[in-house]
Nucleic acid binder design. Structure first.
Lengths: 199, 199, 199, 199
DNA sequence: GATGAATGAGTTTTCATTCAT
DNA sequence: AATGAATGAAAACTCATTCAT
């Protein structure tokens, strides 16, 4: 079924054009016309792939989480546990151009979830998936007996998760104030603070 | 003698109507018409106070930070240091309805700063002001000799600041997943983790 | 296959509707809405052909000069030199309903050139093209040895050109005071006054 | 009755502000607000002097003709007849900054007379007054026996009048193409051409 | 006399969506 | 599948005019 593949590829191409318009001009400017132009398609052609604008937006938001997941799945993690954890969690930080754009788009859509229930359910799913990754990290620390003894697992999960999203938020909104290195250093500092022995 | 109107009060009244529309319908739906209706004014009357929509938005965003600052200034902080710090930092968390709304509005505007340089400069100012509050808290811990010895002040500031905004973000986007209590508990847990002795 | 529409024909149709509104209601009343209605189109449809109102006005003004040129090109001029010259220059006078309307429109746009640089450049081009026609007429008189000997070519060009536009202006603004016949008679009188021998 | 003088002075001041806005921004931009601001008055104050905008426009147009007449009346004309005639007729040409502005304003209003009957009647009156000045000049040439013998008085009047307004029109619309000097030279050339003997 | 707040209809422009081809 | 013409509603913004003070 080669047609289906093409069809999906085309939808992805359109969603990426959507990202681009959102990042450069904002969600309010992301009109069907502009997206079609950015994608090099006619307005009518777009309708073959997405019958409404909100369908397009939902797909475009979902593509962000698909990308993050795909990267996480395909990547080989190697080395000392702390470093592997750092790498895993870095998937959620804007450490390079691709991830930076994805997170900008995610932030814009997240703000929209406040009043759009279609997007809200996707947002919730991703929140929970991401949380389970963080949970897994904390659990690993405990299982490997690296974690400090008096550590409260539940609060540590909230703390680490909030820290990651807080760092990502600051980095996207104020890239001049929080560099990628500082962001990574803060994360590493935190991970170490959870461990019994200094590395 | 012209009709005497408290210009600033009226502007605040309009900005609050703007908040309300943004929170209930989203920024894209926050048209001049809807805001005017919400504020109980005619469209033309609105233009007396804000000649463009972007002026209105800038004022409405600024009002959020003004409110936070005003509350922080007027409040009496009392009790053991850790609790005072907790209270100070809680100003930045959506712990009650007023603050919840303010932060929703702030988030929506923050997403817009990505493509609106007028809002961006306000965002930057507030980022820095808030950072200095966090810095002050960390510094106090050190000055009071409560802080652990091997604590890295610079990284602790980033960490605490990111933690606060991450908690606020999670709480706004997923109030069902992160309760106010859990948010406060996480913050308290973090503050204690910075101290030498368990309190 | 998309609907096939002769883009240029449609634009001309719209421009003619614009003329009509301008002539009957004035430039200030020539709103996109009224023009669309006059042209039998929707407001949105108009935007397919002219994305801004000023584009539409520029095209509508240019259409006037195009029409004058087209007529001049297609017409066969015949007869004694003085009569041919009279006919050529009459293209620039409101001697019939079509030309009357065109010149009314031209006058209205000309007034607008004072503050609109886009229209100003078109106005300048047409001024120069028209001047070269007048120049050609004077030169022909000289070449044919019909002209008086002491005639100053440069001043004669300015004089004839100003005379023509002055007559056109008077005729448009005060049709009751200056009839078409009187206008034509004045022009003929002037042309003869340039010649050696009474015809 | 000093109040009345003040009242009229104020109206003139407002009309001059109107001219300025018209010349710099065009008639369409000449809103009550802008005129009030230009005149240094409040919108409401303007209403004391002109209850509607069209009243203000009519007064502003009339002021142009009043100024021309006043200048013509107060001026002392002296010297050889041809030069006096040249001077008289030059009142109708944009030979200095004041007259340039007046004629720009006159042109703009003239275009509006096409669809505004209130302005049209003023325009007609002025047209006739001006025509009688031109008639007077031609008659003087005849009475002084300076005019050529075969001169057709009626056509000469139309010709001279059209020439003057044509020159004025060209000079206003294309100041770069027709200098003040050339304009004056053309007029003088024409006047001489009406005379029996070369000067 | 004078102010400027307020109105509501007006403007241009943009938009998502539909539809004939 | 694809085009782009067309629609009509809604957007931001401007305006002349009114009116309470």
């Amino acid at each position: 079924m080669p047609k289906i593949i093409d069809h999906n590829k085309r939808k992805i191409q359109i969603a990426e054009a959507t990202w681009k318009v959102i990042v450069t001009e904002g969600l309010e400017q992301a009109s069907v016309r502009k997206i079609a132009k950015e994608a090099g398609l006619s307005v009518g052609a777009l309708r073959h792939y997405f019958s409404t604008q909100s369908e397009l937006f939902a797909f475009s938001m979902k593509l962000v989480s698909d990308r993050v997941k795909k990267r996480a799945t395909e990547k080989k993690y190697d080395g000392p546990p702390i470093e592997v954890m750092q790498e895993i969690l870095s998937e959620f930080l804007p450490i390079n151009d691709d991830q930076y754009i994805e997170m900008e788009v995610w932030l814009v859509f997240s703000a929209k979830t406040l009043v759009n229930s279609e997007l809200k359910s996707l947002s919730k799913t991703v929140y929970q998936e991401m949380r389970s990754v963080v949970e897994h990290v904390i659990q690993s620390l405990v299982d490997l007996q690296m974690a400090k003894d008096n550590l409260d697992k539940h609060l540590e999960i909230e703390r680490l998760y909030a820290l990651i999203d807080g760092l990502a938020l600051h980095s996207i909104l104020h890239p001049d104030e929080l560099s990628t290195d500082k962001m990574q250093a803060t994360l590493k500092y935190h991970l170490k603070s959870l461990c019994k022995y200094a590395e």
